[in-house]
Design a protein around this nucleic acid. Sequence first.
RNA 1: GGGGUCGUAGUUCAGUUUGGUUAGAACGUCUGCCUGUCACGCAGAAGGUCGCGAGUUCGAGUCUCGUCGGCCCCGCCA
Length: 587
Amino acid sequence: MQYKKRTHTCGELRASDAGKNVTLTGWVDFQRDLGGVIFIVVRDRYGKTQVVFNPKNNSQLHQQAAGLRSEDVISVSGKVNHRPDGMINPNMPTGEIDIAVEELTIITKSDVPPFAITDDVNASEELRLQYRYLDLRRSPLQKNFLIRHQMYQITRKYYDELNFIEVETPILMKSTPEGARDYLVPSRVHHGKFYALPQSPQTYKQLLMVAGMDRYFQIVKCFRDEDLRADRQPEFTQIDVEMSFVDEEDIYQVTEGLMKRFFKEIKGIEIQTPFPRLTYKDAIETYGSDKPDTRFDLRFTQVNELVQDSGFKVFADVVKKGGVVAGFVAPQCANYSRSQLDLLTDLAKKMGAGGLVWMKVTAETVESPIEKFIGKEVLLAVKNKMKATSGDLILLISDSWMKTYSILGNLRLEIAKRLNLLDDSKNNLLWVTDFPMFEYDENDKRYVAVHHPFTSPKIDDLPLLDSDPSKARARAYDLVLNGNEIAGGSIRIHDRTLQSKVFTLLGIDEEHAKKKFGFLLEAFRYGAPPHGGIAYGFDRICMLLTGEKSIRDVIAFPKTTSAMSLMDESPSEVDEAQLKELHIKLV
RNA sequence: GGGGUCGUAGUUCAGUUUGGUUAGAACGUCUGCCUGUCACGCAGAAGGUCGCGAGUUCGAGUCUCGUCGGCCCCGCCA
């Protein structure tokens, strides 16, 4: 197919180009056939330009143009004209001109597309995913990918300037215990053996530090075979970073620098550094989350002392058992109806709460269904401690420390949504620090690492590893933006003995540790520098910078919530012969 | 694994509460008319496995059960 190559893109011609002979290539965006004159809007990645076919000039050409339909690919040549007076379209950047076509090549015809390629999308996400290449033609998605591209460039430039080197690590690696479910890849050469796709390049980047690379980064795909969410895909992209001879402050500083650039170069916003910091304990006790959304307050207050000796047995028992009675004030929600309160109670119960206690604060008094048990005095004391005023609604939960605060955390977000407190113009970044080393897994009856098994404990807490591991804090940190975890990392263990000890605490015996992580322990015999790092959730940051609600909108070919690709229909069955070669039998 | 919600024309939806004539609308598509439109306009036409499968019923888009798929959430995500 012979066609004229473009001299300009569809977004660049202006009034000053009038008189030029140009060629544009692109897709037919829209056709307006007035019987005589025909207007076609041609679209490419850069914009849209209107071209005109007039039967007076060339009737054969005009007839050809009458057959053009949406999404046909064409090449048009002609002269750039100033539009006549009153015909300028102020809504189009190229609206002052159009092109009087002298030559048209229909390069490819298009079938009628299953949905219209328009900015304000009309089709369901299901259909858009099935025809993702058409969805990606839409300008809002193209803009997202332009921002994603900028993020890649900013990241590489930034770390390069700071003397980091980009190193690729294997995609086929050893399956390791701990953490997320692995995606497995069978080995053809070695019967019955499997590679795993990396959940993260964690061990490799630590080995690169042992190798003396000193400062490493990589923009890298990671894979986790877990259930999906709006902000979670089974394959996703991280900016992976590791540095030698550093402590937490070095990591914070380097990370804050990159975030500053993202915001400045992509959104034109100066963000303040250093970012605020909150310990894990404070984050949970104040906001009920280890990734608190600090764009609004609705902070929690603990009222154990006020209710422990009151007549309300539920509260008294919880305090006696070492639990927590706490709550927060929903401002001006005292007018909530019974059914609205029931909905909140249901939400709390779904999270595992025994119930939800509410108190309505009026000018004269405090109303609550538990008044008959707890007494008016205690109600007033709670009201005063929580600084509630007339018209407010107090919500209280009583349970174990973790349960109380996490349920309150969810209620807090629900109330914030109802009160419209989520201000998208705010960009609240903060560090959450001092995570615990371990949490107890009730199913497996053992400790599991909160971050990962290579995370260093705080030096002050080393004795706790022997006495009470559950109280030991880790040198781990997360970066949070408006309630989203966008990065996380830690200072690692570089001492073989300490690493072995942590493995033991995690219930990984010496033999098992040697089998699974022997290569890392072995490496630590030959001079491991102190090191630490961080990994950013690239897709999540991109989602937040583009203002999207799902990372699917910043991933070119995403999976559905059941981990399927609707376009190419993966996963799919494979030939018997392929299975045979891999020595795999389906059961 | 669990909870919620949705699935009807190419597309977006109405109709399902209370089973009953030929399942509607808008956009799109097709045909004709129309020489400066830009959501062009006007006239007309075609277009349906009501996701799929059982069941109840004289009769099911509508009721019941199962199943598949989309989205949101809990669990899970070192």
